[in-house]
Amino acid sequence: MHVIGKVWRSGAVALAVGFGLLEAPAPSHAQRGPQGAYCASNDNRFARCQVPWRDAELVQQMSKTRCVRDQTWGFDRNGIWVDKGCRGQFAPAYGRQYDDGRGRGWGRPPQQLQVRCESHGGNRQFCPVDLRRDDQVRMVNKLSGADCRQGRSWDWSRDGIWVDRGCRAVFVVERRY
């Protein structure tokens, strides 16, 4: 094909898109709720969710696939993106703390996130939550008659909170920036 034909074809495609004759895939809109927005990579496919925030943080992982910032989810000028099966509840993030290991930096007061985690039938249940080094987790409301004692029937790690032996409770994650 001659150069003139290529230029004409690319110009025709640009005009067709401009007039709406050809459709470009539209970005997904996040399903917003009281705690933020839900965004999902279904069938391990890349997806974008538009939100009116300048940055986001994962507040609860909703998939078996681990959601890791800048690997299976991220945030850019087009909103939240998820990939490789990551599904989660996201909330606005208002800045990042500078931490050089000596407590220097800036931040804001701790943000609290509530997570409900329940052991049914006495079985261990893991509730994925993206926890950071400086986060603190505490039980605020015991929902079961079973004993809920940290280190015995519940605890937490960087990946989330686990409950066991019939412990059902609401936990608060204090996020420090």
Rank of each mutant, 00 (worst) to 15 (best):
G101T: 01
V68F: 09
N44L: 11
L22W: 12
A169N: 10
G107E: 08
A16T: 10
A24V: 11
D43W: 13
A37M: 08
R108S: 13
A30N: 00
G79N: 00
R45D: 09
G79H: 03
A169H: 14
T65H: 02
Y98A: 12
Q112P: 08
S144K: 10
Q136R: 15
G11F: 10
D83K: 09
G95Y: 01
G151P: 08
R138G: 04
V129F: 02
G107W: 13
L113E: 05
Y94M: 13
V172W: 02
L15P: 06
R133F: 03
G121I: 07
V51I: 13
V137Y: 02
G36A: 08
V173E: 04
V68G: 01
F75W: 08
R9Y: 09
S157L: 13
R133G: 10
A146E: 11
P109Y: 14
C49K: 01
M62K: 07
C117G: 00
Q125N: 13
D55V: 03
S63A: 14
N78L: 12
R32W: 01
R158N: 13
V13K: 11
A12E: 12
C49H: 04
L15Y: 12
L143Q: 11
G79V: 03
R96T: 13
H29V: 11
S41G: 14
V3R: 13
C39A: 12
K84A: 08
R77L: 06
Q35I: 08
C117K: 00
T65E: 05
S153N: 07
D76R: 11
N141R: 15
G145F: 04
V129K: 00
A146K: 09
Y177T: 06
D159V: 02
W81D: 00
G18R: 11
D155W: 08
W53V: 08
V59Q: 01
R45H: 12
G101C: 12
A16S: 14
W156T: 10
A93K: 10
R133H: 07
V137G: 00
P27G: 07
D147P: 10
V173L: 10
D130K: 06
V172A: 04
W8R: 15
G88K: 02
R54H: 14
Q125L: 02
G166L: 10
V173F: 02
N141P: 00
E174D: 15
Q97R: 15
A40T: 12
C148Q: 00
D135A: 10
D159N: 14
A24H: 09
W73K: 01
V59I: 15
F126Y: 13
P27V: 04
G85I: 01
W156Y: 15
